[in-house]
Design a protein around this nucleic acid. Structure first.
Length: 467
RNA sequence: GGCGGCGUACCCAAGUGGUUAAGGGAGAGGUCUGCAAAACCUCGAUGCAGCGGUUCGAAUCCGCUCGCCGCCUCCA
């Protein structure tokens, strides 16, 4: 068994072997912090969180770097709109981003560098490119001449001539090719500015990733990831800059996650068809969102809808229900070893380019088998199998403690019922049941049901949960 | 226009040359239950957009047709 990864660079699944045995260096493009992150960002975040988790799960030491782009036109525009400094904008959204990440159950990367804290590294890289005649100045701007880099287009499979012919951009006459991109931009008054050999200005978008990835991970490093939409031009430009500057590959495996769509169209700010992560998490559990994403392969598009999310939520309920049930009937404190056969099966699914849909199928198969054993009061091998189920879910980040309690909280917050009301209705119903007053007991149950509360009579007493 | 991808049951979705086409949701029937809920059991595509072809054998390879999407512009 060995991990295979689909490498965008080759267009094929390849056997993954890190540069250093047992160690993986991974860089993923993060977000530009000018607005709240939406569910599309969440997909990318969760995809690479799972990859991070699984690489660790399979015994690697992982250096995982994800950046913040904290200097950009959109940030400046937002600052101007609100008449505040740009640092206020980036600070606000970085803070929001950390809160989102925590709620999504993301593992923290090993480093989360910001562009503005790496200006010297960026300048040094541009100088290096300039020395190799891979940069030219136009007024206070510095551009990268794409036709001077032979491999331009190798990641996205595009050809310079074809792109120039079909260019839809308004052509900047000062550039040698419409595809040339800015390494450094001169700044207008009031914009973020740093001194540089080319005059006061700020870095272009792509250069920060080249500078920071290599600074933290060396060159080449093992995995570079990001959303499909970053493949061109962003990642192509990163390759041009880094490989142009150092004459060696930037990254060995390129991973791109598929995009999130809404009614079949890409979720994006410009289309206005997006939900922020916060909006969604007020109504749904992060585990359900993650489950929704895990249900499709990371490279496929996923169509987002609240119906799909609710459906994923019902599936997530089942897993947590099973886990809770298994937890109750196991000896407390017993340190069980996950059942080896199950773990092997899980690994072989995940080793196939992180095939989470198949891994989920395995999880459900085992959930059913476990429930069956529990129904039959057959405790043989139960601990090991429950531990395996738990471990598989954990490797996907699906284990969110307090899952049902959060579900209750979300419902109670709507103000339709409160706990006291539920408890007293249940007490009254229990009284009716003791007297075998079934019509009254059923009437109370219906009353609760109308308020979204389901009653469950168990040997240990009456429990309630949210519908 | 160029490049890439997708079309599998009511819905979502794996599978990409070879036993009965995973799994989830919804639905139907059943076991359990005072009745429920949960759980479990059973049933759901002789067929994988359509048409041709290659092959002993195709959802899986090739060709054409139809439909949808992404990138080529900031974008996870």
């Amino acid at each position: 068994m060995a991990l295979k990864i689909f490498n965008t660079l080759s267009g094929e699944k390849e056997l993954f072997s890190p540069l250093t045995e047992g160690e993986v260096r991974m860089y993923v493009c993060g977000v530009t912090v000018y607005d709240s992150a939406h569910v599309g960002h969440a997909r990318s975040l969760i995809t690479f969180d799972v990859i991070f988790r699984y690489l660790k799960f399979s015994g690697h030491r992982v250096e995982f770097v994800r950046n913040f782009t904290d200097v950009d036109d959109k940030i400046i525009n937002k600052a101007n709109e609100e008449k505040v400094g740009w640092e206020k904008i980036t600070a606000r959204y970085i803070e929001e981003y950390y809160r989102d990440g925590e709620m999504l159950g993301l593992l923290r990367p090993t480093a989360e560098p910001r562009a503005t804290l790496h200006i010297p590294d960026i300048i040094a890289l541009i100088e290096r490119l300039e020395a190799k005649e891979l940069a030219y100045r136009v007024d206070g701007d510095v551009y990268f001449p794409v036709e001077r880099f032979a491999g331009y287009g190798k990641l996205s499979g595009k050809k310079i001539e074809e792109m120039e012919a079909g260019a839809r951009v308004e052509v900047d006459e000062r550039k040698k090719s419409p595809l040339d991109f800015a390494l450094w931009k001169s700044s207008k008054p009031g914009e973020p500015t740093w001194d540089s050999p080319w005059g006061p200005g700020r870095p272009g978008w792509h250069i920060e990733c080249s500078a920071m990835s290599t600074k933290y991970l060396g060159q080449p490093f093992d995995i570079h990831g990001g959303g499909r939409d970053l493949m061109f031009p962003h990642h192509e430009n990163e390759i041009a800059q880094s490989e142009g500057a150092f004459g060696k590959p930037l990254a060995r495996y390129w991973i791109h996650n598929g995009l999130l769509t809404v009614n079949g169209e890409k979720m994006s700010k410009s289309l206005g068809n997006y939900f922020t992560i916060q909006e969604i998490l007020q109504v749904h559990d992060a585990a359900a969102l993650r489950h929704l994403f895990m249900g499709s392969h990371y490279r496929s598009p996923v169509d987002f809808s609240t119906e799909a999310l609710e459906e994923a939520g019902r599936a997530t309920d089942r897993i947590h229900e099973t886990l809770a049930r298994a937890g109750q009937s196991l000896k407390p404190g017993a340190e069980a070893i996950p059942e080896a056969g199950l773990m092997d099966a899980f690994r072989s699914e995940m080793d196939d380019d992180f095939n989470t849909p198949r891994a989920l199928a395995l999880i459900f198969d085992e959930a059913r088998a476990l429930n069956r054993s529990l129904d039959e009061k057959n405790s043989k091998g139960l601990e090991g199998r429950a531990a395996a189920l738990r471990s598989m879910c954990d490797a996907l980040g699906l284990l969110h403690s307090g899952y049902f309690e959060r579900k209750k909280e979300r419902w109670l917050k709507k103000g339709i019922v409160n706990r006291e009301e539920i408890e007293s209705l249940i007490a009254r119903r229990d009284g009716a049941r003791r007297e075998k007053n079934w019509p009254e007991a059923d009437r109370i149950r219906q009353q609760l049901r109308d308020k979204g509360i389901l009653i469950e009579d168990t040997p240990g007493g009456t429990l309630w949960k949210v519908k």
